[in-house]
Design a protein around this nucleic acid. Structure first.
Lengths: 197, 197, 197, 197
DNA sequence: AATGAATGAGCGTTCATTCAT
DNA sequence: TATGAATGAACGCTCATTCAT
């Protein structure tokens, strides 16, 4: 039953942080949303920032694990397209944390560190794949890292622009991945029922 | 004379926002740093957020103008490399605002809108260039937009990782641009005196 | 068996109150120290203050009884010296409660009343003795009371200064009592290994 | 005008601390009593405890100065009687702080230190006088210190019992001092209009 | 224009107490 | 009797903003 409450607090916080950002969300908002008392919050988290750190940590870890699982070892023909696709899907599934961190910032240097560690982790996965594929045979390690970071940047920016700013749903992922992979497949036009706000 | 004070406040704020973020910087910090009185702040800015908006607006506008100037019309051989290089340089010169927005977030939906408008503006510049170059002759408008956003994502991520997280100086810009442009030139090894923290 | 737990709580509280004072000691500290659950506390005490009252009451009562026993009826030569000595010993043996009340206060008017009643009780014992000894044959009742209170003040201040502030051990009690009694016996020099802090 | 507010806060705090004790007095009580805003409090004091420390420090310092001024150098016939009288008067005039510290405790180890330093300071003044008077020619330094502390204890206890618990007014000071000095003068009976509570 | 003392709404956190098991 | 998760009222403190000078 205790873990139920903890889960409820995390879910409430995730929702509110996404909607209004970390600084605009009060602990009182979170506990009201979660249906628990003010004091209950502090049974499970040392502080509001501790909650955020905990959420960021677990979400980013989950993302890193998923990306690693999806992107490693697949040395097939369309490898790069698949990597983009799988990574986009992970970003889609975790757009809450993406939105929170991108729109509202890290809120503390500890969370910043966690975020930076996340990027480094993904970068290493991608660098590893690039090496295994022999994609850039004459690149140095340092160059491969730049290339890997640039792939992350591509995915993150389009994920942010299309999933968050423009509210695209999952049906466009493949078309977007094809563009990122350099393929020429048709990218469907922006749906008319989805308006930028 | 009044404009001197306004400039002083802006500079102080830019410095402090970069060092500690928007939410950790108090108006009292800004006026102390600027050497003016508390009340003077409100002669020039409606609120703390108004100051941030004003800073974000002008910095991003400056960046957009610089990128447009540097990236438009240059239909030469190494066009894409030049675009990456020029854009990286603009990012380097404006790494303060980049750091503030990436690390600490937008702090209000108005600033978010400004930020999104900035990306859209840059995207249009790049899309225009891609069209002029005939880089992707059979891409639809929508696909070109995805491609353009992905370029911005590349630049922004590497600019963040190398200029901000790893404190690279300007001397590495060309090498990084070459990787982003897909060139094979040697990327200089990470300087030993610069450590990731 | 329940009384074991009650005793444990009282001992834990006495220890913690002495170390950190009443206000700095949480009920959760006490139950942790006593090794019982939070709720158990309220089986034995109405409230945290009720516990303190209970402790103060029983300690002060014990002291009053001891002082009365030691100081009454002994109409011998060195009467006054013996009174000072015996009282100092009682204070020494109860320096915990002395420290709590002197350093950290009464914490409620009820406890204040208990403390005041204690002093009045001791005062009456001493007044009685003074009368029996004929120490101040021409003093009025009121004057004897002032004299009695002044004796208590003497003992309490030196007990506080030497037993609590300066951590003197029992071996100096006689020397101190001699000074209080106006005797000329040698007061041993302050031990060098005990430093005022 | 700023110092007016600071004074107002100090006076309000002194009054409320005396009436209800440090822990029962909220900052909101103090500012309401002083007629200033909540934030104004923190213009003049770092914290609630800082205010208490500041009050304790200045009151005790004032007392120490007054006692030293009154008790030093007067090597006349009735020296000891005068010392008791003057000291009682200082205690009477500062019964607020006496009441606060005795009834409600020191509230922090820093304030405890200030209090202990006060006692030591007074003790040294009294010891000095005892030496100058040749009151105890064959006492060691250590014995003189015990004697000095015992004098302070006498005064403090009777001051507490008569000025605070029993609300005696200034008219009884001389009679009390005579008893403390060992004189035989008549101590007036307890006034009937003043009741112990 | 410039000042800086004053404001007060608002928030994160604590902790004595309760109650279902 | 014993537990310990849950409660919620209460408080110290912050800081963006105002305004009399």
């Amino acid at each position: 039953m205790g873990e139920d409450k903890k889960e409820g607090i995390i879910e409430a916080a995730l929702k509110l942080f996404e909607e209004q950002g970390y600084h605009n969300t009060k602990v009182s908002d979170i506990v009201r949303e979660a249906g628990v008392a003010q004091g209950t919050f502090y049974l499970y988290f040392k502080s509001k920032e501790d909650l955020f750190r905990s959420i960021a940590e677990s979400c980013l870890d989950e993302m890193a694990v998923a990306i690693k699982r999806n992107c490693s070892g697949s040395v097939k023909e369309e490898s790069f397209y698949r990597m983009m696709l799988e990574t986009l899907e992970v970003y889609y599934d975790n757009k809450s944390i993406l939105k929170i961190l991108n729109r509202h910032g890290a809120a503390s240097s500890e969370i910043e560190d966690i975020s930076n560690a996340f990027y480094r982790r993904i970068m290493l996965v991608i660098k590893q794949s690039l090496m295994e594929w022999g994609a850039f045979p004459n690149y140095s390690e340092a160059q491969l890292e730049v290339a890997a970071y640039s792939k992350i940047g591509m995915v993150e920016m389009v994920a942010y622009q299309y999933f968050i700013v423009q509210h695209y749903d999952k049906s466009h992922i493949e078309a977007i991945a094809q563009v990122l992979a350099g393929s020429k497949a048709q990218c469907p036009p922006k749906p008319t029922d989805v308006v930028d706000e």
